[in-house]
Design a protein around this nucleic acid. Structure first.
Length: 602
RNA sequence: GCGCCGGUAGCUCAGCUGGAUAGAGCACCAGACUUCGAAUCUGGGGGUCAGGGGUUCGAAUCCCUUCCGGCGCGCCA
């Protein structure tokens, strides 16, 4: 669809106004009021806390006053003089310590809504990412069993963040790192081998300590028996370990993929750790060599940690990475005493692979128990990229699971952990996803299985979805009550039908509040994406839903505020346009979170 | 002992990278359904932003420090 420059300014109103403030600053530079080359980057345009202050506020005068050698209020007056000439601006006030409060012409809000309708699902989409390649790595659960509930949060967070970044104009790759090379997958193989013998009819008795006891390995044993017969029976481990391991990992990953699909979590790339160390191409070794060539790897000794005594501490010389040179607390070992690479060494090679594949912008999503690992990984990324790549690690805090206020115990023993699948089956994918995102990632989260399915007011998922369903229902009702309007079904026809609607008839304060909220969406998308904080989208949706519900209820007391006004098709159409805008943005935001936007919820 | 993350209303949490008189929900109290979906809405009380210093026009937000809670602290992943 062709978007004129005129429409463009309403597609992202705040960016447009900020640009005009910058233009005003340039004009003041030309007037010698401001010095040339002054830093404008700290200027923000934001909605004022108090609506009586106007539609937008900017701190321009306050942040520039010092460098300009002027009093904030005097500079603000100079800005006001320039901004008053702006076509969109109705009124400019200087307030408080030097705020510039802008009141926009009423027609602006109708134009914003017009832009929402024209762009539809594309409204809020941003180019701020400039198509930069970003790698988002999340989940990366060990392929040794089904996903448990603790994985939910990171999975949902990473998935939503990736979607959000893509919407903000980044070229996103969603990645899963399969830890298929360490000692754990050998344990998995031995556990599966036991199930294999069981499948062949042997009584295996108790699962020995140190092996995975879960029943989920029985199908693996059966599959091995079906594939290999008794070929590995009674044979030494060296013969069967590799094929059994490969089969078990493959089947576990299939299960994990299924679990993720149940949560609506997607990945583009599943990257195998084993691929870094197996075969002729020893990527880990090459990475270490390269770091050594840069003087970043050496043989040395580490002091034992103070205050937390390690029982079997053995002072020995080892291969160390100079992570202290990049801000880490101590240097970190790359080789184990058995000659193998540490997990860290593999992870360096893995992140180097990301860099080699063109990513200078990396995001890893980890659980809280890996927090102590951040500095060394950032050090490593800095080292392997020559300082060209940056890694942001997002930590998702623990989820405290309960049911009706009673904590759900999660024993490590067989069958007693709560799987991701069970939670999704019990409360639904939408509820899980929304609740996981309705909290800042680095705050712990209380998740009550009973409360989440309560369809009550304190349940944000239903609150927002209900608003969407309500909006859709307005169109159903309008079509029924006012057939002469000839409302087309949702979709492309809807926008065309609404094209000539006199939106200026939306003049109620509640309606204008909603339009202002819609105008905020593009700015919200950008700030949430840049901050790597998808939870902001969830809170925005809650606010928008709240304003919609409030306006709806006002129509109960004041019939002239209802959306459907029988004897005024024009006004009805204008309000339907507003509802369409609300529904569009609610659906868009819910889509960013990977949560459904139902048309009805009866 | 060190590092990271938290501490905001009785409870659960926001607070838009430093802005104006700190906001929601739950709970509590009082109200609104013959009317577009009451899974909703309106109003009310409730705060030393853990404590103390600092930076500046301005701090819940940045720095220092103390206290409390969580996570982590060669050769696990």
């Amino acid at each position: 669809m062709a978007t004129s420059a005129n429409q463009q300014q309403f597609a992202h109103l705040f960016a447009h106004v900020l640009a005009r403030v910058h233009a005003a600053a340039d004009a003041l530079i030309a007037d010698k009021v401001l010095p040339a080359g002054i830093d404008l980057s700290r200027i923000v345009v934001e909605p004022p806390r108090d609506a009586t202050h106007g539609d937008m506020a900017t701190n321009a005068a306050m942040v520039l006053a010092k460098e300009a050698g002027l009093k904030p209020r005097d500079l603000a007056e100079a800005f006001a003089g320039k901004l008053r000439a702006e076509p969109l601006v109705e009124k400019v006030d200087v307030a408080g310590p030097g705020f510039l409060n802008l009141t926009l012409k009423p027609a602006v809000w109708a134009d914003v809504l017009r832009s929402v309708l024209d762009q539809g699902a594309g409204y809020g989409r941003s180019g701020i990412g400039r198509n930069a390649a970003v790698n988002v790595e999340y989940v990366s659960a060990n392929p040794t069993g089904p996903m448990h509930v603790g994985h939910c949060r990171g999975a949902v967070f990473g998935d939503a963040l990736a979607t959000l970044l893509a919407f903000a104009g980044f070229a996103v790759t969603r990645e899963y790192y399969i830890n298929d090379a360490g000692a754990q997958v050998d344990v998995l193989a031995r556990s599966a081998y036991l199930r294999y013998r069981e499948a062949l009819g042997e009584n295996i008795g108790e699962i020995p300590e140190g092996l995975y006891p879960g029943d989920y390995l029985k199908p693996v044993g059966e599959a091995l028996a079906a594939e290999y017969g008794d070929r590995f029976k009674g044979r030494p481990e060296i013969e069967w370990l590799a094929p059994v391991r490969a089969k078990a990992i493959a089947m576990m990953m299939d299960q994990i993929r299924g679990d993720l699909a149940a949560l609506n979590v997607r990945h583009d790339v599943f990257f195998s750790e084993r691929s870094l160390v197996s075969g002729a191409d020893d990527a880990v070794g090459r990475t270490i060599d390269a770091l050594r060539a840069d003087g970043l790897v050496y043989q040395g000794r580490l002091p034992p940690p103070k205050g937390a005594p390690v029982e079997d501490w053995e002072d020995r010389e080892q291969t160390l990475f100079r992570s202290t040179q990049f801000g880490d607390d101590v240097d970190r070992p790359l080789m184990k005493s058995d000659g193998g690479y540490t997990y860290f060494a593999s992870d360096i090679a893995y992140h180097k692979s990301k860099f080699d594949r063109g990513f200078t912008d990396m995001i890893d999503v980890w659980g809280a128990d890996h927090g102590g690992y951040i500095k060394r990984m950032q050090a490593a990324v800095s080292a392997v990229s020559g300082g060209k790549a940056a890694l942001d690690v997002k930590i998702v805090q623990l989820v405290k699971l309960s049911r009706g206020g009673v904590p759900v115990k999660m024993s490590k023993r067989a069958g007693e952990f709560v799987t991701l699948r069970e939670v999704v089956d019990e409360v639904g994918r939408d509820a899980v996803r929304f609740m996981m995102l309705y909290r800042k990632n680095d705050a712990t989260l209380d998740f009550d299985l009973a409360k989440v399915i309560e369809q009550s007011r304190d349940n944000a998922v239903f609150y927002v979805q209900y608003a969407h369903a309500r909006g859709v229902s307005v169109f159903r009702n309008a079509a029924e009550q006012m057939p002469d309007l000839a409302i087309p079904a949702a979709g492309a026809g809807r926008a065309a039908w609404l094209a000539g609607t006199p939106l200026a008839r939306l003049s109620d304060e509640g309606e204008l509040a909603i339009l202002r909220r819609l105008a905020l969406y593009p700015r919200l998308v950008e700030s949430a994406a840049l901050a790597h904080e998808p939870h902001r989208v969830a809170f925005y949706l809650y606010d928008l839903a709240s304003e919609f519900h409030a306006q709806w209820t006002r129509g109960k007391d004041l019939p002239h505020l209802r959306f459907i006004i029988q004897n005024d098709p024009e006004l009805t159409k204008a309000r339907l346009a507003m509802v369409e805008g609300i529904v569009t943005v609610l659906a868009s935001g819910l889509g960013l979170l990977g949560v459904g936007a139902p048309d009805e919820m009866r």
